[in-house]
C-alpha cells in the first residue's frame, strides 16, 4: 500500500484494491494508494497502461468492479465526493454548437459557478478575444484552452487532469504548468502527461501505471537514473572539452550524480572554459517506461 500522509482530509484520495475496465477488458488490477496532502502528483505510464481508466475511476465515471475509491470520507459515487473534484479528461469536452462564452456559461451551470466567474476565467485564460466565436471555428489548441478554463470556474480540493497540456503551444503550455503548480500548493493535483520533462518540472510525486497496476509511487526527487549525464554548451570552443562526446550543441559528460556538477563547472572555469549552459541530458523518468 503506497501512501503520502499529512494535510487536510477533504483532499484525501484513497484507492483500495481498485479494479476497473470496459466490457470484458479489465484495465486496472488491484490498484491501491492513498494521497493525503496537497501537491502535484504526476501519473505516468506507456500508452494503454490504464492512466485514463484510473482518472475515470477516481472521478466516479467508471464504476469499480472491485475495491473502493474514497474521496475525503465519502465513496466516490456520492455527490459530496464529486463536489470536491475537478475532472479534465484527455478529450476537450467542448460542447459544439456554442460560442466560447456560451460554453463557459454551460460549464458554469454544471459547476454551479457565478456568471462573474465566466468573465474572470475569460480574462485569466486570455479567451476574451475568442468569446464570440463558435467552438467549431477554433483550433485544437484554442479548444483545449476553453476546456482547461472550466477548472478555474470554481475552486475544489482535488484536480484530476488527464493530459492537460497536450495540443497546446509552448507558451500556453508553460502558463498552464504555472497555474497547475500554483494549484498544487494548496490542492491535490493528479496530472498525467507524456512529456517527461514537464512531469519532472512540476511534479512532486510520481505514480507509474504499468499493465494496469501501480508500479511505483514515490517522490520524484527520490528517483535517480542509473546514469547522470550533463550537457555543456560553451560560449566559444575550448580544447579542454575537445575529447568530450557531442550531442548536438552539447558536450556531454557522465557523472556519478548531481553533486559532482559544481566541481566539474569549477574545473572547467579554472581552465578558462566559458560556459553558456549546463543541463541534465537524461531524465530518470524515462527509465520508468522500461
Amino acid at each position: 500500500m503506497h501512501a503520502v500522509a499529512g494535510g487536510d482530509r477533504p483532499s484525501r484520495i484513497e484507492c483500495r484494491g481498485l479494479r476497473a475496465g470496459y466490457g470484458h477488458l479489465e484495465v486496472l488490477r488491484d490498484v491501491s494508494f492513498t494521497i493525503d496532502r496537497p501537491a502535484v502528483y504526476v501519473v505516468l505510464g506507456p500508452n494503454g497502461a490504464g492512466k485514463t481508466t484510473l482518472f475515470r475511476a477516481l472521478a466516479g465515471i467508471l464504476p469499480a468492479r472491485a475495491g473502493t475509491v474514497t474521496i475525503g470520507n465519502d465513496a466516490v459515487d456520492r455527490p459530496t465526493a464529486r463536489d470536491r473534484m475537478h475532472y479534465l479528461s484527455h478529450l476537450d469536452g467542448v460542447p459544439e454548437g456554442l460560442r466560447v462564452r456560451e460554453a463557459l456559461e454551460f460549464y458554469a451551470r454544471v459547476e454551479r459557478a457565478a456568471p462573474s466567474d465566466v468573465d474572470r476565467v475569460l480574462d485569466r485564460l486570455e479567451l476574451r478575444e475568442l468569446a464570440g466565436r463558435f467552438l467549431a471555428q477554433l483550433s485544437a489548441g484554442q479548444k483545449k484552452r476553453v476546456s482547461i478554463a472550466r477548472i478555474f470556474l470554481r475552486e475544489r480540493a482535488i484536480y484530476l487532469l488527464d493530459e492537460p497540456t497536450s495540443n497546446l503551444d509552448p507558451k500556453l503550455a508553460r502558463e498552464i504548468r504555472g497555474l497547475i503548480l500554483e494549484l498544487g500548493r494548496e490542492r491535490v493535483v493528479l496530472y498525467s502527461s507524456h512529456n517527461l520533462y514537464e512531469a519532472r518540472e512540476i511534479g512532486e510525486f510520481v505514480l507509474v501505471i504499468r499493465d494496469g497496476r501501480l508500479a511505483l509511487f514515490d517522490r520524484i526527487e527520490n528517483l535517480r537514473g542509473s546514469r547522470f549525464v550533463v550537457g555543456l554548451r560553451l560560449l566559444r570552443p575550448h580544447p579542454a572539452v575537445a575529447d568530450y562526446p557531442r550531442q548536438g550543441e552539447y558536450f556531454v559528460r557522465e557523472l556519478k550524480g548531481p553533486e559532482e556538477v559544481p566541481g566539474l563547472v569549477r574545473d572547467l572555469e579554472t581552465q578558462g572554459v566559458l560556459l553558456r549552459e549546463v543541463r541534465e541530458m537524461e531524465n530518470p523518468l524515462e527509465e520508468l517506461f522500461g
Partner: peptide, 19 residues
Amino acid sequence: VFTSDRMKGVYEYLLAYGL
C-alpha cells in the same frame, strides 16, 4: 448533439459532475 458529445468527451465531463 448526442453523438458529438459522446465522441468529444462532453458526456465524460457531465457524468463526472453527476448527470
